[in-house]
Computed example of a mutant assay.
Amino acid sequence: MLVTTLSAQIVLAVFALVYAASVLATVVAVRDPHSTLGLKAAWVTALLLLPPVGLVAWEASRVVEHRAARLVHA
């Protein structure tokens, strides 16, 4: 089981909501007959780039929380 701090869980939850909204927006943009090829490509690219960005944000929140905890207990 993965144990995370509350701030890391909040970051992960916000990322999940943003990613779900991006999936919906990508589906709408790709299925829209009036959207340009560039717009479709931009949404698909953003959808592919979001997971690494979310994981970096999650790990950064864990590192910050860990450092803060070490300073309090030192």
Rank of each mutant, 00 (worst) to 15 (best):
L2D: 11
L2Q: 13
T4G: 02
T4W: 00
T5P: 13
T5D: 14
L6W: 13
L6D: 14
L6E: 14
L6R: 14
L6P: 13
L6V: 14
S7A: 10
S7P: 02
S7W: 03
S7G: 01
A8D: 01
Q9P: 02
Q9R: 06
Q9L: 03
I10Q: 09
V11P: 04
V11M: 05
V11I: 04
V11N: 07
L12K: 07
L12M: 07
L12V: 03
A13I: 05
A13T: 08
V14L: 01
F15C: 06
F15P: 06
A16E: 04
L17P: 00
V18F: 09
Y19C: 03
Y19L: 04
S22D: 02
S22L: 01
S22V: 03
V23D: 12
V23K: 13
V23S: 13
L24R: 06
A25H: 14
A25Q: 15
A25G: 15
T26P: 05
V27A: 03
V27F: 05
V28W: 14
V28G: 09
A29W: 09
A29N: 11
A29L: 10
V30Y: 12
V30I: 12
V30M: 10
V30W: 11
R31S: 15
R31A: 15
R31I: 14
D32L: 09
P33W: 08
P33Y: 05
H34W: 02
S35T: 10
S35E: 07
S35I: 01
S35K: 08
T36D: 07
T36N: 07
L37Q: 15
L37E: 15
G38F: 15
G38E: 15
G38I: 14
L39N: 08
L39A: 10
K40D: 06
A41Q: 11
A41G: 08
A41F: 08
A42Q: 13
A42M: 13
W43L: 14
W43N: 12
V44P: 09
V44S: 13
T45W: 10
T45P: 07
T45V: 10
T45C: 09
L47N: 01
L47M: 05
L48K: 06
L49G: 03
L50Y: 12
P52N: 06
P52K: 00
V53Y: 07
V53L: 05
V53H: 03
G54P: 08
G54F: 03
L55I: 10
L55F: 12
L55K: 00
L55W: 05
V56E: 08
V56T: 05
A57K: 03
A57Q: 02
W58A: 01
W58R: 00
W58Q: 00
E59Y: 00
E59L: 07
E59G: 01
A60K: 01
A60Y: 03
A60D: 03
S61T: 01
R62K: 05
R62Q: 04
V63R: 08
V63S: 04
V63T: 11
V63K: 04
V64C: 02
V64E: 07
V64G: 02
V64F: 01
V64P: 00
E65P: 08
E65V: 07
E65A: 11
E65S: 10
E65I: 07
H66R: 15
H66P: 10
R67M: 11
A68K: 13
A68Q: 13
A68P: 01
A69T: 08
A69S: 11
A69L: 10
R70E: 12
L71F: 05
L71K: 06
L71V: 02
L71A: 08
V72L: 05
H73T: 13
A74Y: 10
